[in-house]
Nucleic acid binder design. Sequence first.
DNA 1: CGCCTTGTTGACACCAGTCAATTCACGTGG
DNA 2: CCACGTGAATTGACTGGTGTCAACAAGGCG
Lengths: 191, 191
Amino acid sequence: MIVEGFALRQKTLEDGRRQITAIHVPGDFADLHSFLLKKLDDGVETLTACKVVMFPHENLKKLSDDFPHLTRVLWFMTLVDAAIHRAWIMGMGALSAPERLAHLFCELKDRLTQVGLAQADRFRLPLTQSELGDVLGLSAVHVNRSFQQLRMDGIVQTDKRDIIVSDWDELRRFADYNPDYLHLNQTVERD
Amino acid sequence: MIVEGFALRQKTLEDGRRQITAIHVPGDFADLHSFLLKKLDDGVETLTACKVVMFPHENLKKLSDDFPHLTRVLWFMTLVDAAIHRAWIMGMGALSAPERLAHLFCELKDRLTQVGLAQADRFRLPLTQSELGDVLGLSAVHVNRSFQQLRMDGIVQTDKRDIIVSDWDELRRFADYNPDYLHLNQTVERD
DNA sequence: CGCCTTGTTGACACCAGTCAATTCACGTGG
DNA sequence: CCACGTGAATTGACTGGTGTCAACAAGGCG
């Protein structure tokens, strides 16, 4: 399923606590992981109106039988997903709340730029502060206070749901962000 | 590279903070992710004496050209890695410190049982409390206190580096643990 | 025996969660 | 056009979980 919109992947505990484990931006192959894992233990929820392109598992199976290179490209996409997971783990374990928020902004800026959905100084973030809390493992109130700190420090401005940053390098330094893990513009060699 | 021992995957920040993003148990294909991602941004460190079996990328390339089913099996293994990453994200964002520790114990018990390295009521955990802190995003001191709470609640005992649990179901309930994400015993269909 | 790593403990500071109230933005219906 | 309702953002007061620092105990090992 390829999504033309924003979607979230989340896990929910017995007592209602939930954690968002991935953010899918337009163009992402949202549940490619379910091709081989079959029953995926977490659910997907759309954030914005989404056009979805379905890809039946039989077709993927056939494709992976006949086109080794294309298979490697799809595999590569899931490996990038895993690398993003690791970056999030790093953020949740080692970064402060404002740093985590800043790190997420840096990542989304780069991912959205890749699909032409970010402007030079800003991008649209269709998440409420409460949802951001479920992404970062913070309470909604603390997300709000982290926002305020980034605004007071002058490294992030907001306008409605737009995130505005004039000096991305400053934000990247603040968040200790290194985009290598996204493997942007990398190609999967054919031979 | 297939490892016959314990190893850690970790990310390090500029200022020295580090976060462990994965624990490899004996039998894991430790850096299969680097096959297509090439430069992996995090490093691997061994915990115990390890025998390693190297697998050159050219061989993997050839294998994925000629054996679609085997390719899907390898792909599947990396998808399980990603599922484990998501479970860790869930734990770091939604669980308390003792719950996180208990959740990790449940996961390692199941993974070690699969390779015949766990006994019915215990398994060997070759990590210091400080390293556990870097896994769970906690300070070493707080890992120690979480240990004490689990011991006082009577759901975990320790003997040197052995983790001893008499009632796994109780521990699983405490940690809200569901092993589905490990996809144990699942096969990748050939046709 | 004495070092060195690991585990343990206490005191204290601070980051982050909770709860409740208020403001704000926005859409809807009268 | 305005009153109202709803969800989101914001604020304050307070609590509690977790980090930090420092000291000490407990083992493993040369």
